[in-house]
Design a protein around this nucleic acid. Structure first.
Lengths: 330, 330
DNA sequence: GCGTTTCAGTGAAGCGCTTCACTAGAATAT
DNA sequence: ATATTCTAGTGAAGCGCTTCACTGAAACGC
């Protein structure tokens, strides 16, 4: 039995070629399938990674999961998936994963401010953990972030570079605390700083916060129009919101980009097919999943010394909605 | 030890209240966490379900996975996820799942015509299996389908009911065989039959097949416009394609719905925020995941006798692109 | 009061594998 | 020729739990 085990695990030194072939042949004849559970039991590791995401249907999660899965598959790990929309169910998911003896955990959250005592504890117990997109003040934990401040700044600066000075902001929720998104706060900060750097005003009335949804963008744009602040451009900090905003502008007979230039944030291909096509800051979502998985795998192999704390940048994709390609009057 | 096991598994008959409390207290003190691997080993089942999807990023998959996850979580099962874009990797994923001793498998494929010898074999080995959206000719296997023929028919009939007679079709790929989608074939059949039932013509030139993508719909609409067949309406058999088509129509200065009425198929919320909002046949995607999970769980509990073969219907959502709400001239 | 049933708890096998420690024999060294 | 090393293979413990078969004591029946 031990010989068979060595053969099936590819230990070439311990077994002669003849016995090896014999065993392999027997395995084939018997239709032998190794029992991963028993192996995990004996080895005290499972080659399974637990992945927790906040909501499966959120557009961020498919690409992240895809990225994670690509790398894990390639590295020989399996992926146990759970969704957890609040701290209680996150803790429950972690407990289940630990019971399941996962080798490591990846958590991809919305940029909500969750409490993280349980993550500290996980870390303390020595379970390899990588966290994506969470406002976490625990430097020992590997983290992958997005440069949300930079995105706010970059989007606004692009509009500034096109000559706009009255640039509004449609952004995700910043209050109340349960739904507040770090990304929304940071993007707003970026917008503010970009305008302030040019000594331009940033009045409260040029900003609308709403949910990161089509509906939210639609409502926000309507509200902004109603305020009649003579804006010539708006930075919409989410592609779903931008689609909603485009509709509201269209209904208000505001032409984009002539009457209202739009820059937004996102990754999905559909931003290229809106009317007009949206100029976006591409968010490296799938990449964040890949990187998280790689970092985790390196941890598991003991190839890491210091904790990772990466911030991924956005990339400007100029299309029609910002009006770059049009001569426009100011 | 056995007493502890009984207590922790909630067997109330075998243990006195005092010992139970003692054991529970000790478990708490020791921070005891049951080892699911060891339990699986002893019980010969894992409470893990393997889920295979074709491409994580395909818009069908997030809702399906969501539906599956909801039910499985509620029923106490874990979800092991793998993506497999072709038969070879599907077989590999199944092998891994079997090694992992999953209790059952759910496969959600694109409606490609995959070979299914390996599924028959799975079935023969007695592994509970539910397949969503695959063209499978194996009546013993539980299957969840979408009524694609019905959707083609229903969408076309809606346009007929609005007085259109020259109704084009933009549809998914039907050839070559590697990329051919059953859904495309069926929807075309529905379109043909709906028109034929009214003794209307269904010329080849009114139909364009392309990929189920924004790009595909864009190209297809351009091609259709170029043919100049004086169509007044088109059934676009995918919401992504419809978004692309809308853009092509817009660029060709064709007004939707006045010059070209559009009905499409899909579920995602974004169809309500296109310009104009798309009239769609809603595809019960998440529901298909829920149902698949329920069927599987029932199988695992031995509560099923006959194999399931469900076909889920589509539901018409009238919005702007079909022109229902407009008086229009014919 | 004796046999029977119930109750509470214990012992031990076994789930399928890995891996350390070991052995017998062959090869090599001195 | 003897000691040492190497090679190929074996034995057995053990991973952490479940569950069947069992036991001793208490409760019950007539």
């Amino acid at each position: 039995m031990s010989t068979a085990s060595y053969v099936l695990n590819g230990d070439h030194k311990r077994v002669s070629v003849e016995t090896r072939d014999l065993i392999l042949a027997a395995a084939r004849d018997l239709n032998y399938r190794p029992n991963a559970i028993a192996r995990s039991m004996a080895r005290q590791k499972t080659a399974i990674i637990g992945v927790i995401i906040t909501e499966i249907q959120n557009p961020l999660f498919a690409p992240v999961t895809d990225g994670v899965e690509q790398i894990l598959r390639q590295e020989g790990y399996q992926l146990l998936l759970a969704s957890a929309g609040d701290v209680t169910s996150e803790i429950a998911a972690i407990e289940t994963f630990l019971a399941q003896q996962v080798d490591g955990i990846i958590i991809m959250s919305l940029s909500l401010h969750f409490s993280d005592a349980h993550l500290r504890q996980l870390q303390a117990e020595g379970i390899p953990l990588v966290v994506i997109n969470r406002d976490l003040d625990v430097p020992e934990i590997d983290q992958i972030q997005f440069d949300d401040y930079g995105s706010g700044r970059m989007g606004t600066e692009h509009l500034l570079s096109l000559g706009h000075t009255r640039i509004g902001l449609i952004c995700g929720p910043v209050a109340p605390v349960e739904v507040r998104r770090r990304s929304a706060i940071e993007r707003r900060r970026g917008w503010t700083d970009a305008l302030a750097a040019q000594a331009l005003p940033t009045p409260e009335t040029w900003v609308i916060h709403d949910e990161y949804l089509f509906e939210g963008g639609y409502r926000a744009a309507q509200a902004l129009i109603a305020r009649d602040e003579h804006l010539t451009a708006v930075f919409v900090a989410s592609d779903m919101m931008a689609v909603g905003a485009l509709k509201a502008f269209h209904e208000a007979a505001l032409r984009v980009p002539q009457d209202m230039a739009v820059v937004t944030i996102g990754d999905p291909p559909f931003t290229a097919y809106t009317i007009p096509a949206l100029t976006t800051l591409r968010m490296p979502i799938m990449e964040s999943g890949q990187i998280a998985a790689r970092v985790l795998v390196e941890s598991l192999r003991g190839q890491r010394t210091a904790p990772e704390c990466l911030t991924l940048g956005y990339e400007l994709r100029i299309r029609e909605s910002c009006g770059s390609q049009l001569p426009h009057a100011h």
